[in-house]
């Protein structure tokens, strides 16, 4: 930590009043600044990043995730396959030179399908978590900031909604709304904001009593300034960490929806839909239609969970460092 940073000279000589009688020779000139040196470390986010980067597992997860994203979105540029017209002549073929991961029951190339399905899975994960985090942050922030009766009413409403099991609600809604990426994202997102709203509210409530917020009030800061300059930036870390978990959960829920049969409109597909007939494939020994897509899905969810955990630790360190 002892960066050999030059301490700039002080403005004004800062020797406090008290001193010893006769100063011995060579005494004063080499003293450190009165307040002590400022050890230069690094900016807040850089420190968080360093903490994150020191977690090797989290780095691997991040790298893996980047690879998967590249595979899904850039992969199709290099690996062409027909994903719009089914091919009855090439149904459920095992992996071969022509189809590296075989074909599915509609004759689509499975590797290309993985890319396509990955695109929609990642998109749905991102959109759903975005919807959830926006609603959740606003809702929680309002409840925490306004307080009083409104807070009580708003949070009781969250309690009621939270007692309906997420998966069941999503399934019920999916009977009417599924088929497009947007539909599924909305269905997932609209019932995922409850937990973030609670987290943000809790964070806002504790932040409100922190001394630096009180200090801002004593200097005459408006409510708006307190909210936008102090409360929201400080509550953001909770939100950011939560996004990664929300994405992970959304992709998991997507898989369940697909398995039960609520998915994207054919010939579009997501990893969830591709697992819809997984049970039949397993019984028929068509492993290439189950494990590549399932494995990829688990890896992505795992990566998001690991990244979320590491982020939480890193942000904690940044704020609690003493």
């Amino acid at each position: 930590m002892a960066d050999s940073q030059q301490i700039e000279p002080l403005i004004g000589e800062q020797m406090e009043g008290a001193m010893l009688g006769p100063a011995p020779s060579g005494g004063l000139h080499q003293l450190v600044p009165d307040g002590g040196e400022v050890y230069v470390t690094s900016s807040g986010w850089r420190l968080a990043w360093r903490e994150y980067a020191s977690n090797r597992l989290a780095l691997i997860a991040l790298a893996l995730l980047v690879l998967v994203v590249l595979f899904c979105f850039v992969g199709p540029i290099f690996y062409h396959s027909n994903q719009t017209l089914s091919n009855p002549l090439a149904q459920t073929e095992p992996p071969s030179g022509a189809h590296l991961l075989g074909t599915d029951q509609n004759g689509f190339d499975e590797l290309g399908r993985l890319m396509l399905g990955g695109q929609s899975a990642l998109e749905i994960g991102a959109y759903a978590s975005l919807v959830a985090i926006v609603i959740g942050t606003l809702y929680g922030a309002i409840a925490g900031l306004v307080g009083g009766v409104l807070d009580a009413v708003l949070m009781r409403f969250v309690d009621v909604l939270l007692s309906i099991p997420f998966l069941i609600v999503v399934l019920v809604l999916a009977t009417k709304y599924s088929g497009t990426v947007l539909d599924i994202s909305l269905v997932l997102g609209i019932f995922s904001w409850l937990v973030p709203s609670r987290l943000v509210r809790g964070e806002v409530l504790t932040l409100r009593t922190r001394d630096f917020v009180i200090a801002a009030q004593t200097m005459g800061a408006t409510r708006r300034r307190v909210i936008f300059r102090h409360l929201i930036p400080n509550a953001m870390s909770v939100t950011i960490v939560n996004i990664t978990f929300l994405i992970a959960d959304s992709i998991l829920a997507l898989a369940l929806l697909g398995f039960i049969g609520f998915g994207l409109q054919f010939p579009n597909t997501s990893w969830g839909d591709m697992l819809g007939n997984a049970q039949t494939y397993v019984t028929n020994g068509q492993w290439w239609l189950v494990y590549p897509v399932g494995g990829l899905l688990v890896v992505v969810v795992l990566c998001f969970n690991i990244i979320g955990d590491a982020l939480r630790d890193a942000v904690d360190v940044r704020l609690q460092r003493r």
């Binding site: 940073q5 700039e8 600044p33 230069v40 003493r322």
Partner: peptide, 12 residues
């Protein structure tokens, strides 16, 4: 009694 390079630093 703090050095000027403190300006760009964060409280932590």
């Amino acid at each position: 009694g703090l050095p000027v390079n403190a300006l760009e630093r964060y409280p932590h």
